[in-house]
Every structure is written in structure tokens, then in C-alpha cells.
């Protein structure tokens, strides 16, 4: 049992020991953080990029923007929570804006991103980024093919002042402008998605109309 010396036989002072071990731990964590930072950034960008390109079917590249207080757009390099994403097609033409939005669903926050064509006043697509809705019921908002398809090229319904009306949930097959598909058993979650997008649209649609997206030449992004 000679190898099994019990704890603390030749111990230094507790304070000194804790300081040393904390410093070593700090350096180890900082080192790994530095080492993994480029990978993490790359992974985060791919994850975001994939959903942005998913909701802007014609886009091949995108740039992140922030709305300045004076209403004009400012290009940003590190997208934050309030960023918009401008998609461009292969010829560098604007292919729509991807807007992240979130709100409460049945269980918890639903985070999503939707594609908007502000000039043609139509939605281009929708993807759920995070949700904790019930698997098999509400969670189908993330993968129900007919539901997701109903956001593609969806003409918006506007009131007389040009403001977007809230999205409606179709009773049968979606027919009119601003109508999305229903999912049996996911009524609450579908309503939440419709509400989140409607609220975000009323904030963004009119602000984005007529904005000059060619402020900064494409090609550098």
C-alpha cells in the first residue's frame, strides 16, 4: 500500500495551492479557447448561412446588415441578434432579405428566420431555428413539408395603407394571399409561428421597401 499515500500528506498552504491550480486552469481554458475559436466561428457561420440560404431560394451569397436609427442600412461583419441578411443571386442581384424573429410558442420560445421580398411583397420561405414544441405535434412546424412549402412565394395581404395584415391559417388548402397551411394537432404552434412572423413583418416590411440595397457594391462579401 506504499503507493496509496493519502491526500494532503505533503501539502502546501491551501491559499497558495488554490491560486496555482486556478492559474493553471485559466491558462488551459484560454489556450483551448484560442485554439478552437476559428472552428467555432466557422461552425456558427455555416449553421446560420444554411438557414439563410434555405429561406432565400435564389440566393447564393448573403451579407449581414443592421438598420441604423436614421433608417438606412449599415453593413456589419459580425452578425448579432438584430441583424438582417441580404441574399444575392449568382449575378449579384438582390434575392430577398432573411429576417430572424422569435416569440413564445406552446412550450417555450420559438426562434425562426423567414425570407422576405420587400418589393414584390411576398415571403420566400421559413425555417424554424429553435423550438421546444411537443415532438410529433407542435414540433412539426420545423419539418412538415406542406407547412414549410406554404411560405414559399407567399403573397402578402396588405391593408389600404400598405401595411401587412396578419398571416392567416387556412382552414383547408391555402388559397388567398397571406394564408399558410395548417398542421393537424399543432394549432397552437402554427398560430405562434403566424403571430411571430406577422409581428416582425409589421415592423420590417414598410421600412425595407424602397431601401437602396446597392449602397455597397457586391463582390466584397
Amino acid at each position: 500500500m506504499s503507493e496509496d499515500k493519502v491526500l494532503g500528506n505533503s501539502a502546501p498552504s491551501p491559499q497558495r495551492f488554490l491560486v496555482v491550480i486556478a492559474v493553471v486552469a485559466g491558462f488551459a481554458i484560454a489556450g483551448v479557447h484560442e485554439l478552437t475559436r476559428p472552428w467555432v466561428a466557422e461552425q456558427r457561420a455555416t449553421l446560420l448561412g444554411r438557414s439563410v440560404l434555405d429561406v432565400l431560394p435564389e440566393a447564393v451569397t448573403f451579407e449581414a446588415y443592421r438598420l441604423r436609427t436614421d433608417g438606412s442600412l449599415e453593413r456589419i461583419e459580425e452578425p448579432d441578434a438584430a441583424a438582417l441578411f441580404l441574399g444575392r443571386d449568382a449575378d449579384g442581384r438582390v434575392a430577398g432579405v432573411a429576417i430572424p424573429a422569435s416569440g413564445f410558442g406552446y412550450q417555450d420560445r420559438i426562434g425562426l428566420v423567414y425570407g422576405l421580398d420587400p418589393e414584390q411583397r411576398r415571403l420566400l420561405g421559413m425555417r424554424v431555428l429553435e423550438s421546444r414544441e411537443t415532438p410529433g405535434l407542435g414540433a412539426r412546424i420545423a419539418d412538415d413539408a406542406a407547412f414549410l412549402e406554404s411560405f414559399v412565394s407567399l403573397e402578402l395581404s396588405l391593408d389600404d395603407a400598405g401595411r401587412p395584415r396578419p398571416l392567416r391559417i387556412a382552414a383547408t388548402a391555402p388559397a388567398g394571399p397571406g394564408e399558410i397551411d395548417a398542421i393537424t394537432g399543432a394549432t397552437v404552434s402554427v398560430r405562434a409561428v403566424a403571430r411571430i412572423i406577422s409581428e416582425s413583418l409589421s415592423e420590417w416590411l414598410q421600412r425595407l421597401q424602397g431601401l437602396d440595397f446597392h449602397l455597397e457594391e457586391p463582390g466584397d462579401g
Binding site: L7, S10, A11, P14, L18, A25, I29, V32
Partner: peptide, 27 residues
């Protein structure tokens, strides 16, 4: 084990564990 002072052993354990957890998390 022979260096860790008895009085702060739990604090030291948690510090070591937390370091490994943080590194694993980042990886």
C-alpha cells in the same frame, strides 16, 4: 493527491473538473 491540502480538497476537485468540462464543451 499528496499535494492537495485537505482543507480545500473539494474546491480543488471542482476547479479541476470544471476546467475539463469547459474544455470539453468548447471542443
Amino acid at each position: 493527491r499528496e499535494t492537495i491540502p485537505r482543507q480545500v480538497r473539494l474546491a480543488s476537485f471542482v476547479l479541476v473538473i470544471a476546467t475539463f468540462v469547459t474544455i470539453t464543451d468548447m471542443l
